[in-house]
Computed example of a mutant assay.
Amino acid sequence: MEAWMNTISPHARMVKIVKSSTLSGEWVDFDHVFTYIEQGEAEFILNGVKYLAKEGDIFLMPPFMPHIIRTTSAVPLIQYIVHFDLNYDDARSRWKVTSLIDEETKQISENEMVLADVVPVSHLRTADRIELKRRFLMLQKVFLDEKPNHFLVEKAFCIELLHFFFLGQEGEANQEGKLTKGWGLLEKSIHFINRNYSNPGLDNHTISKHIGVSTNHLSFLFKDQLNITIHKYLTHVRIEQAKLRIIEGNRSLTAVAKEVGFSSIHLFSRSFKATVGITPSQFYAAHSNIRTGG
């Protein structure tokens, strides 16, 4: 532990505050994700282990750790989120879309995975929460302003946030998560959906048949453990993939709709707006300057 602490040079890729009234979905990122819970409660399922998240909790997810999050409280969930690399790399510093997993982003050095075996959750005392939020907001301002030497200041704040994470683990037994009921079947289903979402004929029956259980049982597991239907999860995957392709900016919306498994542009547009809150064309306009290369 001491060795890597003495050698890291963090690079902040994204600093944001996310407020969600309802949230349910799975994410996988190629970098570290630091998440502080400012308000609300949620279930975090990390590699099949369920943690109950509440105000004052910090989650630290290393690269490629699948994380499913669903809100469980009446008040909106507010997350302070930082995406970062532990060690600066010039090529990686130009990657912006953190959930774009391809052959290039899959290549990762061993020194980026030193936190893979660390318990991914800690809980801060009230006084420490105040200090963490102050540091986070300062980091966000520096990140957005991009003034001279901002990279150096961002490194310092990232190191401080890591300090707060480990501070929250001191003096307390680490929060032990519970293995999610039926996780083996859910994991197989999620992987199957992620590999086959582009097939417009993919449905509950096809998925459950591949997994080897009844449609009713698989539907029960999705609702009971993830609080989401199989169809809604499939739609979530398709929309997330569509967003990545729209951001890339080299395909028509009709082509995007076909690539991610929608049978028509009309169904795609309707589903996209219902999920994201804006139309695909509005999303494209809002992200027209973002490209995977920087």
Results as ranks from 00 to 15, higher is better:
residue 1 M to G: 14
residue 2 E to P: 05
residue 2 E to C: 05
residue 2 E to D: 15
residue 3 A to M: 08
residue 5 M to T: 11
residue 5 M to F: 13
residue 6 N to I: 06
residue 7 T to S: 13
residue 9 S to V: 11
residue 14 M to N: 12
residue 30 F to P: 05
residue 32 H to S: 07
residue 33 V to Y: 01
residue 33 V to R: 10
residue 34 F to P: 01
residue 35 T to M: 14
residue 36 Y to S: 06
residue 36 Y to V: 06
residue 38 E to F: 01
residue 39 Q to V: 03
residue 40 G to M: 05
residue 43 E to Q: 10
residue 45 I to C: 07
residue 49 V to R: 07
residue 51 Y to C: 04
residue 53 A to Q: 03
residue 56 G to N: 04
residue 58 I to E: 01
residue 59 F to Q: 02
residue 63 P to E: 04
residue 64 F to P: 10
residue 65 M to Q: 15
residue 67 H to R: 13
residue 67 H to Q: 10
residue 70 R to K: 08
residue 71 T to S: 15
residue 74 A to Q: 12
residue 75 V to S: 14
residue 76 P to R: 05
residue 78 I to P: 00
residue 78 I to E: 04
residue 78 I to K: 05
residue 79 Q to D: 06
residue 81 I to A: 11
residue 81 I to N: 11
residue 84 F to T: 10
residue 85 D to P: 09
residue 90 D to P: 04
residue 90 D to K: 15
residue 91 A to N: 12
residue 94 R to I: 05
residue 97 V to Q: 04
residue 98 T to I: 13
residue 105 T to N: 11
residue 105 T to D: 03
residue 106 K to I: 09
residue 107 Q to W: 06
residue 110 E to V: 15
residue 113 M to H: 10
residue 114 V to N: 05
residue 116 A to S: 14
residue 118 V to S: 07
residue 118 V to L: 00
residue 120 P to R: 04
residue 121 V to G: 00
residue 122 S to D: 00
residue 123 H to S: 09
residue 123 H to E: 10
residue 123 H to G: 05
residue 125 R to G: 12
residue 128 D to I: 07
residue 129 R to L: 02
residue 130 I to M: 09
residue 131 E to R: 13
residue 133 K to E: 09
residue 133 K to M: 14
residue 133 K to N: 07
residue 135 R to N: 12
residue 136 F to N: 00
residue 137 L to I: 06
residue 140 Q to D: 03
residue 147 K to Y: 01
residue 148 P to L: 08
residue 149 N to L: 12
residue 151 F to G: 08
residue 155 K to P: 01
residue 156 A to M: 12
residue 159 I to Q: 11
residue 160 E to M: 13
residue 163 H to S: 13
residue 165 F to E: 00
residue 165 F to V: 04
residue 166 F to C: 03
residue 168 G to C: 05
residue 169 Q to H: 08
residue 171 G to H: 10
residue 175 Q to A: 13
residue 178 K to W: 04
residue 180 T to S: 10
residue 181 K to W: 03
residue 184 G to W: 00
residue 188 K to Q: 10
residue 191 H to A: 10
residue 196 N to A: 10
residue 196 N to M: 09
residue 197 Y to K: 06
residue 197 Y to M: 07
residue 198 S to W: 08
residue 198 S to C: 08
residue 202 L to A: 03
residue 202 L to K: 03
residue 206 T to W: 06
residue 207 I to D: 00
residue 207 I to K: 02
residue 207 I to H: 02
residue 213 V to T: 14
residue 223 K to P: 01
residue 225 Q to S: 09
residue 231 H to M: 10
residue 232 K to I: 09
residue 232 K to Q: 13
residue 234 L to P: 01
residue 237 V to S: 11
residue 237 V to T: 14
residue 237 V to I: 15
residue 237 V to N: 08
residue 238 R to E: 00
residue 242 A to L: 10
residue 245 R to V: 07
residue 247 I to E: 01
residue 247 I to R: 04
residue 248 E to V: 08
residue 251 R to S: 11
residue 251 R to Y: 14
residue 252 S to R: 07
residue 253 L to H: 15
residue 253 L to V: 12
residue 253 L to Y: 07
residue 255 A to S: 13
residue 258 K to F: 14
residue 258 K to H: 13
residue 259 E to I: 11
residue 259 E to F: 11
residue 259 E to W: 07
residue 260 V to C: 11
residue 262 F to Q: 02
residue 264 S to A: 08
residue 266 H to A: 13
residue 273 K to D: 01
residue 273 K to P: 06
residue 274 A to H: 09
residue 280 P to W: 03
residue 281 S to M: 11
residue 283 F to L: 02
residue 286 A to Q: 14
residue 288 S to P: 02
residue 290 I to K: 15
residue 290 I to F: 04
residue 291 R to H: 14
